[in-house]
Amino acid sequence: MKRFACGDVIPGCDATFSAPDEGGIFSQVGAHAASAHGVPEVTPELQAAVRSHIRTV
């Protein structure tokens, strides 16, 4: 199982996401980034930042 805390990339955000794999994390993060942070596209830079903070739990 993988876990990502948005606050690791966007300070002050308390959203967390869990999924069996990175793909599941990224599908959740993409929707969250658009709705909560006004980020319409997960850029390669954002993807790298998220990937570096995904943890196996």
Results as ranks from 00 to 15, higher is better:
residue 16 T to Q: 12
residue 15 A to G: 00
residue 49 A to S: 08
residue 29 V to F: 09
residue 20 P to Y: 08
residue 32 H to M: 08
residue 12 G to T: 04
residue 35 S to Q: 09
residue 54 I to D: 02
residue 3 R to Y: 14
residue 28 Q to A: 15
residue 47 Q to M: 13
residue 14 D to G: 01
residue 35 S to A: 06
residue 34 A to V: 02
residue 3 R to W: 09
residue 48 A to D: 08
residue 48 A to R: 08
residue 31 A to G: 02
residue 47 Q to N: 13
residue 52 S to M: 01
residue 21 D to M: 03
residue 16 T to G: 13
residue 56 T to W: 11
residue 17 F to W: 14
residue 53 H to L: 00
residue 45 E to G: 06
residue 14 D to T: 09
residue 44 P to H: 07
residue 7 G to F: 07
residue 37 H to N: 04
residue 13 C to Y: 00
residue 8 D to Q: 11
residue 38 G to Y: 02
residue 55 R to Q: 15
residue 24 G to R: 12
residue 17 F to L: 15
residue 6 C to N: 00
residue 27 S to F: 13
residue 34 A to L: 10
residue 14 D to N: 07
residue 50 V to Y: 12
residue 34 A to T: 07
residue 3 R to M: 15
residue 3 R to S: 15
residue 6 C to F: 04
residue 15 A to S: 01
residue 28 Q to V: 12
residue 40 P to A: 07
residue 5 A to W: 05
residue 3 R to E: 15
residue 12 G to S: 04
residue 26 F to G: 03
residue 19 A to V: 13
residue 19 A to C: 10
residue 38 G to H: 05
residue 10 I to D: 03
residue 34 A to I: 02
residue 47 Q to C: 07
residue 2 K to V: 09
residue 29 V to M: 12
residue 7 G to P: 01
residue 1 M to F: 12
residue 7 G to S: 04
residue 45 E to R: 12
residue 11 P to M: 07
residue 38 G to L: 02
residue 49 A to Y: 01
residue 40 P to I: 04
residue 11 P to A: 12
residue 2 K to N: 12
residue 47 Q to L: 14
residue 27 S to I: 14
residue 32 H to D: 02
residue 4 F to L: 15
residue 21 D to I: 03
residue 50 V to T: 11
residue 45 E to A: 12
residue 45 E to N: 02
residue 20 P to N: 08
residue 8 D to S: 11
residue 49 A to N: 02
residue 41 E to N: 09
residue 33 A to E: 02
residue 49 A to R: 12
residue 6 C to D: 00
residue 49 A to V: 01
residue 12 G to H: 05
residue 19 A to I: 14
residue 6 C to H: 04
residue 17 F to E: 01
residue 23 G to Y: 04
residue 20 P to G: 13
residue 32 H to P: 04
residue 35 S to W: 04
residue 57 V to P: 06
residue 7 G to N: 06
